[in-house]
Design a protein around this nucleic acid. Structure first.
Length: 260
DNA sequence: CTAGATGTTAAGGT
DNA sequence: CACCTTAACATCTA
């Protein structure tokens, strides 16, 4: 659940539940998910601290603490957050558990452990460290155009590359390209200014609609391809069937009749 | 039993 | 140099 819209939902959830409560302790169930910080450092740092706000950058959740540092979470392919009281059960894939003084808990869940939990002192440092480009919601048209015009690779690879745009992954790049009518293997340098304009517009739109639908691809409007992606494979805007190809090791879904 | 799944990164090839 | 593909990470499910 980890592209920008999903993380946006996590932010809301985090801000609703996890702020301004003293952290009693932190349990690290698997040190594998820790990135650049040891289990003991994390525990020591967060004990008696509070989270004061959570924001998103790209696919990262940044939780600011009351000592002006930032807890960084990335969700990989199977990450989730769950806030619960003592009475409720706890996911077996909880990797880090934050225990608050009110006896509630926030679980960082990651089945496949492809995500990470770490620490940074500023967004600028995180961007530098992870090589992140502009966030998908802050991206300016001129910036987008100038960057994409310089590239020679597949347009889908460009959209998914976090150093060009931070926040877009495999499934939303499929939707954006579907709506723009561009084939995922089209080369960036073949795009006309008009294509780039439409691409930019659809990019904003798809992100917005995804967040409105709480990042559930299957709840997107029926004119979107995502509800059909990997299910009935029926293109919603024609009589064609969708097809798949491999790009950058990922499966790209597209409609060959619409996307040229 | 195998392949693939919403991600990132290193390594090797063109 | 720019960009491609593959493998690896650990786990579950179709």
């Amino acid at each position: 659940m980890p592209e920008a819209p999903d993380v946006e939902i996590f932010i809301k959830y985090f801000n609703e539940h996890a702020l301004n409560q003293k952290i009693k302790s932190v349990d690290v169930k698997t040190t594998k998910v820790l990135d650049g910080i040891s289990s003991s450092q994390l525990k020591k740092w967060l004990k008696n601290r509070k989270f004061v706000s959570a924001t998103r950058y790209g696919k990262y959740l940044l939780a600011k603490t009351d000592d002006d540092k930032i807890l960084v979470m990335h969700f990989g392919m199977s990450g989730d957050l769950e806030y619960f009281g003592d009475s409720q059960g706890n996911s077996k894939h909880t990797r880090v558990l934050f225990n608050f003084e009110n006896d509630k808990h926030l679980a960082y869940i990651s089945q496949r452990m492809l995500g990470h939990v770490g620490e940074t002192d500023s967004l600028e440092n995180l961007k530098k460290e992870k090589n992140l480009g502009p966030d998908v919601k802050e991206l300016k048209y001129e910036e987008f155009r100038d960057d994409i015009q310089k590239q020679r690779g597949f347009v889908k690879s460009f959209l998914m590359n976090q150093k060009h745009i931070a926040g877009i992954g495999n499934i939303y790049s499929d939707e954006i390209l579907f709506q723009t009518g561009i084939h995922p293997k089209k080369n960036c340098n073949e795009l006309k200014e008009n294509d780039i304009k439409t691409l930019y517009k659809k990019l904003q739109e798809v992100m917005k609609v995804a967040i409105e639908n709480e990042a559930h691809p299957e709840r997107m409007p029926d004119s979107y391809m995502l509800p059909h992606r990997g299910t009935d494979m029926q293109c919603p805007n024609g009589d064609g069937k969708m097809e798949t190809i491999k790009i950058s090791g990922r499966t790209a879904y597209f409609c060959p009749k619409i996307q040229k």
